[in-house]
Amino acid sequence: MDFSSIVSALPDLLQGMLLTLKLLVFAVAGGIALGTLLALARLSSNRLLSFLAGFYVNYFRSIPLLLVITWFYFIVPFMLAWATGKMHPVGAFASSLVAFMMFEAAYYCEIVRAGIQSIPKGQVNAAYALGLNYHQAMRLVVLPQAFRKMAPLLLQQSIILFQDTALVYAVGLMDFLNTARSRGDITGQLHEFLLFAGVIYFVLSFIASRIVLRLQSKLAVGQN
Protein backbone atom coordinates (compact mmCIF):
# COMPACT_ATOMS: atom_id res chain seq x y z
CA MET A 1 0.00 0.00 0.00
CA ASP A 2 1.22 3.43 -0.91
CA PHE A 3 -0.66 6.43 0.40
CA SER A 4 1.65 9.06 -1.09
CA SER A 5 -0.74 10.16 -3.83
CA ILE A 6 -3.46 10.95 -1.34
CA VAL A 7 -1.56 13.92 0.03
CA SER A 8 -1.39 15.63 -3.35
CA ALA A 9 -5.03 14.79 -3.98
CA LEU A 10 -6.23 16.35 -0.72
CA PRO A 11 -7.47 19.60 -2.30
CA ASP A 12 -9.59 17.61 -4.77
CA LEU A 13 -10.88 15.37 -2.02
CA LEU A 14 -11.83 18.40 0.05
CA GLN A 15 -13.70 19.77 -2.95
CA GLY A 16 -15.53 16.47 -3.21
CA MET A 17 -16.37 16.51 0.50
CA LEU A 18 -17.76 20.03 0.17
CA LEU A 19 -20.05 18.83 -2.59
CA THR A 20 -21.17 15.89 -0.45
CA LEU A 21 -21.93 18.21 2.46
CA LYS A 22 -23.74 20.72 0.25
CA LEU A 23 -25.90 17.92 -1.09
CA LEU A 24 -26.54 16.68 2.44
CA VAL A 25 -27.53 20.05 3.91
CA PHE A 26 -29.95 20.92 1.12
CA ALA A 27 -31.41 17.42 1.02
CA VAL A 28 -31.97 17.35 4.78
CA ALA A 29 -33.60 20.80 4.79
CA GLY A 30 -35.79 20.06 1.77
CA GLY A 31 -36.55 16.53 2.91
CA ILE A 32 -37.69 17.58 6.38
CA ALA A 33 -39.78 20.45 5.00
CA LEU A 34 -41.51 18.22 2.46
CA GLY A 35 -41.73 15.39 4.98
CA THR A 36 -43.50 17.63 7.50
CA LEU A 37 -46.05 18.70 4.89
CA LEU A 38 -46.60 15.06 4.00
CA ALA A 39 -47.03 14.14 7.67
CA LEU A 40 -49.64 16.86 8.12
CA ALA A 41 -51.38 15.63 4.98
CA ARG A 42 -51.36 12.05 6.25
CA LEU A 43 -52.90 13.11 9.54
CA SER A 44 -55.37 15.40 7.86
CA SER A 45 -59.10 14.70 8.12
CA ASN A 46 -59.34 15.11 4.37
CA ARG A 47 -59.50 11.49 3.13
CA LEU A 48 -58.12 12.20 -0.32
CA LEU A 49 -55.22 14.22 0.98
CA SER A 50 -54.26 11.60 3.50
CA PHE A 51 -54.57 8.83 0.92
CA LEU A 52 -52.33 10.67 -1.55
CA ALA A 53 -49.72 11.35 1.10
CA GLY A 54 -49.87 7.74 2.20
CA PHE A 55 -49.42 6.56 -1.35
CA TYR A 56 -46.47 8.89 -1.85
CA VAL A 57 -44.78 7.52 1.26
CA ASN A 58 -45.40 3.88 0.34
CA TYR A 59 -44.29 4.47 -3.22
CA PHE A 60 -40.93 5.97 -2.34
CA ARG A 61 -40.35 3.49 0.45
CA SER A 62 -40.74 0.55 -1.87
CA ILE A 63 -38.30 1.50 -4.61
CA PRO A 64 -34.51 1.66 -4.35
CA LEU A 65 -32.89 5.06 -3.89
CA LEU A 66 -30.44 4.20 -6.63
CA LEU A 67 -33.31 3.73 -9.06
CA VAL A 68 -34.75 7.11 -8.08
CA ILE A 69 -31.40 8.86 -8.51
CA THR A 70 -30.78 7.32 -11.92
CA TRP A 71 -34.27 7.86 -13.21
CA PHE A 72 -34.44 11.47 -12.05
CA TYR A 73 -31.11 12.17 -13.68
CA PHE A 74 -32.46 11.23 -17.07
CA ILE A 75 -36.01 12.34 -16.67
CA VAL A 76 -36.12 15.61 -14.72
CA PRO A 77 -34.81 17.65 -17.69
CA PHE A 78 -37.39 16.06 -20.00
CA MET A 79 -40.20 16.81 -17.57
CA LEU A 80 -39.09 20.40 -17.11
CA ALA A 81 -38.90 20.87 -20.86
CA TRP A 82 -42.39 19.47 -21.30
CA ALA A 83 -43.76 21.58 -18.49
CA THR A 84 -42.21 24.85 -19.59
CA GLY A 85 -41.61 24.30 -23.28
CA LYS A 86 -38.00 25.36 -22.76
CA MET A 87 -34.81 23.49 -22.22
CA HIS A 88 -33.22 23.93 -18.84
CA PRO A 89 -29.74 22.87 -17.97
CA VAL A 90 -30.31 20.45 -15.10
CA GLY A 91 -27.06 18.97 -13.97
CA ALA A 92 -26.38 15.86 -11.95
CA PHE A 93 -26.31 17.94 -8.78
CA ALA A 94 -29.76 19.45 -9.17
CA SER A 95 -31.42 16.22 -10.25
CA SER A 96 -29.75 14.24 -7.46
CA LEU A 97 -30.80 16.85 -4.96
CA VAL A 98 -34.42 16.62 -6.10
CA ALA A 99 -34.20 12.82 -5.95
CA PHE A 100 -32.83 12.86 -2.38
CA MET A 101 -35.36 15.40 -1.18
CA MET A 102 -38.34 13.55 -2.56
CA PHE A 103 -37.06 10.15 -1.48
CA GLU A 104 -36.02 11.13 2.03
CA ALA A 105 -39.24 13.10 2.54
CA ALA A 106 -41.05 9.75 2.66
CA TYR A 107 -38.82 8.64 5.54
CA TYR A 108 -38.86 11.98 7.37
CA CYS A 109 -42.65 12.01 7.00
CA GLU A 110 -43.00 8.85 9.07
CA ILE A 111 -40.74 10.23 11.80
CA VAL A 112 -42.61 13.52 11.94
CA ARG A 113 -45.97 11.74 11.93
CA ALA A 114 -44.97 9.62 14.91
CA GLY A 115 -43.70 12.77 16.60
CA ILE A 116 -46.97 14.60 16.10
CA GLN A 117 -48.98 11.61 17.27
CA SER A 118 -46.94 11.48 20.45
CA ILE A 119 -48.25 14.89 21.50
CA PRO A 120 -51.27 14.38 23.79
CA LYS A 121 -54.57 15.22 22.17
CA GLY A 122 -55.37 17.47 25.15
CA GLN A 123 -52.74 19.94 23.99
CA VAL A 124 -54.50 20.44 20.68
CA ASN A 125 -57.84 20.79 22.39
CA ALA A 126 -56.36 23.29 24.80
CA ALA A 127 -54.93 25.26 21.90
CA TYR A 128 -58.31 25.33 20.19
CA ALA A 129 -59.97 26.36 23.46
CA LEU A 130 -57.54 29.28 23.61
CA GLY A 131 -58.91 30.37 20.24
CA LEU A 132 -56.01 29.25 18.05
CA ASN A 133 -56.90 27.91 14.61
CA TYR A 134 -55.45 24.71 13.09
CA HIS A 135 -52.40 26.40 11.61
CA GLN A 136 -51.59 28.25 14.79
CA ALA A 137 -52.11 25.17 16.92
CA MET A 138 -49.79 23.14 14.72
CA ARG A 139 -47.16 25.82 14.29
CA LEU A 140 -47.08 27.16 17.84
CA VAL A 141 -48.03 24.20 19.99
CA VAL A 142 -47.72 20.79 18.35
CA LEU A 143 -44.80 21.02 15.91
CA PRO A 144 -42.27 22.68 18.24
CA GLN A 145 -42.78 19.95 20.83
CA ALA A 146 -42.88 17.20 18.23
CA PHE A 147 -39.62 18.37 16.65
CA ARG A 148 -37.95 18.48 20.03
CA LYS A 149 -38.96 14.89 20.65
CA MET A 150 -37.95 13.61 17.25
CA ALA A 151 -34.73 15.56 16.84
CA PRO A 152 -32.57 12.48 17.54
CA LEU A 153 -34.49 10.36 15.03
CA LEU A 154 -34.34 13.06 12.38
CA LEU A 155 -30.61 13.37 12.92
CA GLN A 156 -30.16 9.61 12.75
CA GLN A 157 -31.99 9.54 9.44
CA SER A 158 -29.73 12.37 8.27
CA ILE A 159 -26.64 10.31 9.09
CA ILE A 160 -28.05 7.54 6.90
CA LEU A 161 -28.64 10.17 4.23
CA PHE A 162 -25.02 11.30 4.56
CA GLN A 163 -23.91 7.79 3.71
CA ASP A 164 -26.47 7.45 0.94
CA THR A 165 -25.13 10.53 -0.83
CA ALA A 166 -22.29 8.28 -2.00
CA LEU A 167 -24.76 6.76 -4.47
CA VAL A 168 -24.43 9.82 -6.72
CA TYR A 169 -21.48 7.86 -8.06
CA ALA A 170 -24.10 6.33 -10.37
CA VAL A 171 -24.67 9.65 -12.12
CA GLY A 172 -21.04 10.73 -12.21
CA LEU A 173 -21.29 13.52 -9.69
CA MET A 174 -17.86 14.26 -8.22
CA ASP A 175 -18.73 13.86 -4.57
CA PHE A 176 -16.22 12.69 -1.98
CA LEU A 177 -16.33 9.00 -2.89
CA ASN A 178 -16.31 9.52 -6.64
CA THR A 179 -13.41 11.96 -6.40
CA ALA A 180 -11.47 9.41 -4.37
CA ARG A 181 -12.28 6.68 -6.87
CA SER A 182 -11.34 8.85 -9.84
CA ARG A 183 -8.02 9.94 -8.30
CA GLY A 184 -7.31 6.37 -7.29
CA ASP A 185 -8.03 5.16 -10.80
CA ILE A 186 -5.75 7.61 -12.55
CA THR A 187 -2.88 7.15 -10.09
CA GLY A 188 -3.21 3.37 -10.01
CA GLN A 189 -3.82 3.45 -6.25
CA LEU A 190 -7.50 2.63 -6.13
CA HIS A 191 -7.22 0.47 -3.02
CA GLU A 192 -5.57 3.17 -0.97
CA PHE A 193 -8.01 5.85 -2.05
CA LEU A 194 -11.08 3.72 -1.40
CA LEU A 195 -9.85 2.73 2.04
CA PHE A 196 -9.06 6.34 2.85
CA ALA A 197 -12.58 7.35 1.79
CA GLY A 198 -14.05 4.59 3.93
CA VAL A 199 -12.12 5.75 6.99
CA ILE A 200 -13.26 9.35 6.54
CA TYR A 201 -16.90 8.32 6.15
CA PHE A 202 -16.59 6.14 9.22
CA VAL A 203 -15.05 8.85 11.40
CA LEU A 204 -17.63 11.44 10.42
CA SER A 205 -20.65 9.14 10.80
CA PHE A 206 -19.35 7.70 14.05
CA ILE A 207 -18.81 11.10 15.64
CA ALA A 208 -22.20 12.28 14.44
CA SER A 209 -23.98 9.24 15.86
CA ARG A 210 -22.21 9.69 19.20
CA ILE A 211 -23.50 13.26 19.30
CA VAL A 212 -27.00 12.02 18.53
CA LEU A 213 -26.81 9.49 21.36
CA ARG A 214 -25.77 12.19 23.77
CA LEU A 215 -28.58 14.44 22.60
CA GLN A 216 -31.00 11.59 23.03
CA SER A 217 -30.12 11.01 26.67
CA LYS A 218 -30.14 14.74 27.34
CA LEU A 219 -33.61 15.13 25.86
CA ALA A 220 -34.82 12.09 27.73
CA VAL A 221 -33.71 13.66 31.01
CA GLY A 222 -35.27 16.99 30.06
CA GLN A 223 -38.61 15.35 29.54
CA ASN A 224 -38.87 13.69 32.90
Partner: peptide
Protein backbone atom coordinates in the same frame (compact mmCIF):
# COMPACT_ATOMS: atom_id res chain seq x y z
CA UNK B 1 -18.09 26.26 -19.38
CA UNK B 2 -19.77 23.80 -17.10
CA UNK B 3 -18.28 20.32 -17.11
CA UNK B 4 -20.54 17.32 -16.82
CA UNK B 5 -19.03 13.88 -16.41
CA UNK B 6 -20.70 11.26 -18.60
CA UNK B 7 -20.16 7.53 -19.06
CA UNK B 8 -20.61 5.42 -22.15
CA UNK B 9 -24.04 4.49 -20.86
CA UNK B 10 -25.27 7.94 -19.89
CA UNK B 11 -23.87 10.13 -22.66
CA UNK B 12 -26.69 9.74 -25.22
CA UNK B 13 -29.66 10.27 -22.88
CA UNK B 14 -27.89 13.28 -21.36
CA UNK B 15 -27.44 14.96 -24.72
CA UNK B 16 -31.05 14.14 -25.59
CA UNK B 17 -32.57 15.43 -22.39
CA UNK B 18 -30.72 18.72 -22.45
CA UNK B 19 -28.32 18.14 -19.56
CA UNK B 20 -25.31 18.27 -21.86
CA UNK B 21 -25.08 20.68 -24.81
Amino acid sequence: VQYNLVTSQTRIPLVQNGTVD
